[in-house]
Structure formats: C-alpha cells, structure tokens
Nucleic acid binder design. Structure first.
Lengths: 185, 185
DNA sequence: TTGACAACTTACTAACTAGTAAGTTAAGAT
DNA sequence: ATCTTAACTTACTAGTTAGTAAGTTGTCAA
C-alpha cells in the first residue's frame, strides 16, 4: 500500500491549507486516518520530511497544471483566465498552500524554506511566461513590467482566497475581473 | 508602569508579523523583556487577551493612518500612493500583521477571529472610500467595481511584503507601479 | 510607620508536541 | 514451512506550551 504515503501527503497538504505548518500535527493526521501517530513517523520520520514531500507534491501539481493550460488550443487571454480559475479551485475551502508556507516562513525548517523559495519562484516564472506571450500578442501593453505584473496577479489570486475565508464572501469573480482589467491594456 | 502593557502588545505585534499567532509564545516575549513568563500572564491572563489587545492596537494605528492620509492637502492620486507607502513601511521586516492573522484564522480563538474579520472589513472600507473619491474625480473609470478594486489593491500590498521576505528581493516599487496602473483607467 | 497596591518571581500543573524503541501482524516470495 | 518485509501498535522520552497559586519587592499615600 504505497497509497498510505500519498494519503498522508494529501492530508498534510489539506492541513497546511487550513492551519499552516506550525499548527498542524502528526496527531491530526493519525486521527483522520485512524492509525497511530507512530505509524505516520514510520512513513515520514520527521515533520520536515513530510513538509518537503508536500512541497514536492505542490510543485508537481503546479507544473502539470501550467503545462496543460499552455497546451490548450485557445487564445492566450483564455489561457490566463483558465489558469486563474484552476489555481483558485485547487485550494478548495482553505487558502493557497504556498501562501500558507510563505506566512510560516520563519518557523519552517531550512530545507523547507528553500523549497518554498524555489516553489514561489517557479510559480512566478510560469506566470511570467504566460504573460510574456500575452505581451507579444499585444494583449499586454509593451511598456508593462511583466515581472511586476506576475507578482500582482499572483497576489490577487492568493489574496482573494484569504478574504473569501475570513469574510465568508466569495469575491473571486470580481477579483478575476480586476486581474483581467490589469492585464489588458 | 502602564508602559509594560503596551510594550508587551508591541512585542506581540512584532512576533505576529514575524511568525504568526500560533508560533509565538509567552516565552518569546518574556525573554525579550528580561522578565518571567508568569509576569506576562499578570498583564494578559490568556493568550487570546493579548491577541485582542494586539488587534485593537492595529485597528487604532490603521485608523489614524487613514485619517492622516485623507486629511493631506494633496491630489487623491498622491493620497493613494502615500497610503500604500505608509502601509508597506509599517510592517518593517515582517509581513502585514492582518495577513498573518488571516492565515492563522482557523487556529485563533473565536474572539480574535471576530476582531480579524472586523479589522479586514475596516481596512477594506477605508480603501473603498479613498478609491470612491478617485472615481468621483475621474481617476478611476466609472465602470470599475470599487469593492473589487480595493480587494485587489490590498492583495497586492500584502502580497508584495510576503514575496519580499521569501525571495529576499524588494519588488515593492514595481508592485506600487502596477497598483497605480490598475487604479488609473 | 503602616498599609495598600502594582509588578513582579518562584515553583509548579496539565496538556500537548515531535520523536523513538521494541514488539506485532499479515502477505508474498523462496 | 520459513523468511522477509512493509505496515503497523504499544509504550514510552524529552521538550515545550499555556496557565496557576502563592509568595516577594518597591513605591507611594495616609
């Protein structure tokens, strides 16, 4: 049952989305799986090992998500909208797990810090490529700083999830519109 | 020494900016002040009492900040830029404390959740007023959804602080430019 | 000088955390 | 039939946390 390992990773990812790295515990996971805490330690000796597995999992998901969007046979503007929607849907009830790990940055082990930094850079670069394409096609004006635009777009996506949870009000469609407005012209 | 109380609040605020609510402890505070943990409990019986005091402190700071910006005798566009800059400078080396508490939302006591919700709404409303003024003056186009714009602006401000810390790269000036581009037209 | 009070300290407790060591079970291969 | 191995369990340790109870010190007013 190589399943258990991925099951644990998936659960840890959910918990990071919900409460962050510091707040979640091996006890949370073991109770939800109906096994003992020690059996989680059997699969992931240390909490940081689990955290690294989670960041790898996020990286992989993000990579295939971006690839699938870029290979779609639709206009670039549609690709952008699709990527936003898919990233928003990924987090479900919680917030973006990368954001969560960024917030806990000073409390996570060094190995995990490194992964989170790489992950953030990877996500950013992916968006810069897509927005760069949009600029070539004239959707984004030529004077616009693509890197800064990518930062802004990502901030809006992550921010909308944050506000959705706290204010119990789904403003993702309106935020989406603002992002589109930001990108076009 | 009614000072001690505010000293503790200020320190807790710093720690929340750095590590969040869950990760900071009474021990952190007592060690930095050179007193015992029990003496922090003397001033704030429970951690949630301290957290409530911190949210009140943030509320007050934000209120006076917004009032001072709104009373400035400069064009509305300048007021917007000034408010962004002041909010960015407030957080220093850490992230926005409201963002931090939003991320820890599911782990904070109910009383604190309520305050964080109110605080988020207060900040948002303040920005909506300023952006509404800009719309009346024609800086912001009439078809733009002011509420959504406020969400986007705030997300960018908070996001830039997050990325600044993780990527060790200050992109606040460029983000600032994106926000201005978003607001104008 | 006494007494009241704020601001502590010392010395705990109860609960929870990550992590470990040693033993158990079930299934599949030789 | 026995061996191996993955996937556990039981039963701990050691450290940290929030929180408490009771006693101490310094200041200031009557």
């Amino acid at each position: 049952m190589e399943n258990r390992k991925t099951q644990i990773i998936e659960l840890a990812l959910d918990l990071i989305r919900e409460k962050g790295y510091v707040a979640f515990s091996y006890d949370d996971i073991s109770k939800q799986l109906g096994v003992t805490k020690a059996s989680i330690h059997y699969h992931f000796e240390r909490k940081e090992d689990l955290a690294v597995a989670v960041t790898d999992r996020i990286h992989q998901t993000l990579k295939s998500l971006m690839q699938s969007v870029k290979n779609e046979d639709v206009p670039t503007e549609e690709k952008i909208k699709n990527l936003i929607n898919k990233q928003l849907k990924l987090s479900g009830k919680g917030i973006c797990p990368i954001s969560s790990l960024q917030t806990d940055f000073e409390s996570i082990p060094e190995v995990v810090q490194l992964r989170v930094r790489e992950l953030s850079q990877f996500e950013l670069t992916g968006w810069m490529e897509l927005l760069g394409q949009a600029q070539v096609e004239g959707i984004v004006k030529s004077f616009v700083d693509i890197e800064a635009l990518a930062y802004a777009v990502l901030s809006c996506i992550k921010g909308s999830l944050q506000y959705k949870r706290v204010l119990e009000k789904d403003i993702t469609p309106q935020i989406m519109e603002q992002i589109v407005r930001m990108v076009k012209r």
